[in-house]
Simulated assay, not measured.
Amino acid sequence: MSQATLQVTGMTCGHCVETVSKAVSSLNGVNKVDVSLEQKEVKVDFDEGQTALTEIKAKIVDAGYEVGSG
């Protein structure tokens, strides 16, 4: 099991938080998603055997947000 914390910009409200959470949760191997609007970050617990960090980042970008280098 792996854990990553990603800096995400573009989130401005609770709907944004819900959108990002649902998008990341839809990936196979993602066990937990914690989205913080205040800290503009997404913490993800995932199984690298089922999904890669690059896939998680791509899903966030596809949802309309930007992922920082953090």
Rank of each mutant, 00 (worst) to 15 (best):
D47N: 15
S69I: 10
G49I: 02
G64N: 12
K40P: 04
C16L: 04
E18L: 12
S21K: 14
K59V: 07
V17A: 10
V67R: 00
Y65R: 09
Q39F: 00
S26T: 12
E48R: 10
V35N: 04
T12V: 11
T5N: 08
N28S: 14
T19I: 07
S36A: 09
C16D: 12
H15A: 10
A23R: 10
Q3R: 13
V24I: 13
S25G: 14
S2K: 10
M1S: 11
T19V: 05
K59N: 02
K32Y: 14
V67F: 00
K57E: 12
E38K: 14
D47S: 08
C13A: 06
N31Q: 15
S25K: 15
G29R: 02
V61G: 00
N28C: 10
D34N: 13
T12W: 02
S26W: 11
T19S: 12
G29N: 09
T19L: 07
Y65F: 15
L53E: 12
L27V: 04
V20N: 10
A58C: 13
G64T: 05
V33M: 12
D47A: 05
Q3N: 10
M1C: 06
S21N: 14
V24R: 07
K40V: 00
V42W: 08
T54S: 15
E18M: 10
T12I: 08
L53H: 06
T5H: 06
F46Q: 09
D34M: 03
L53S: 06
S2H: 09
H15L: 04
L37K: 05
Q39H: 05
A52E: 13
V35H: 06
A58W: 03
A58Y: 05
A23M: 14
K22L: 13
S2I: 01
E41W: 01
L53F: 04
V35P: 03
I60Q: 00
K59F: 01
E55N: 13
Q50Y: 03
G70N: 12
G14N: 13
S2L: 05
Q39V: 02
F46A: 04
V8C: 03
E38H: 11
Q7E: 13
M1T: 06
V67W: 00
A63E: 08
E55C: 03
G10M: 10
K59Y: 04
E41T: 05
Q3C: 07
L6K: 00
T19H: 09
K32L: 14
A63V: 11
A52I: 01
T9V: 09
S69T: 14
S36F: 07
V20F: 10
E18C: 01
E38M: 09
G49H: 12
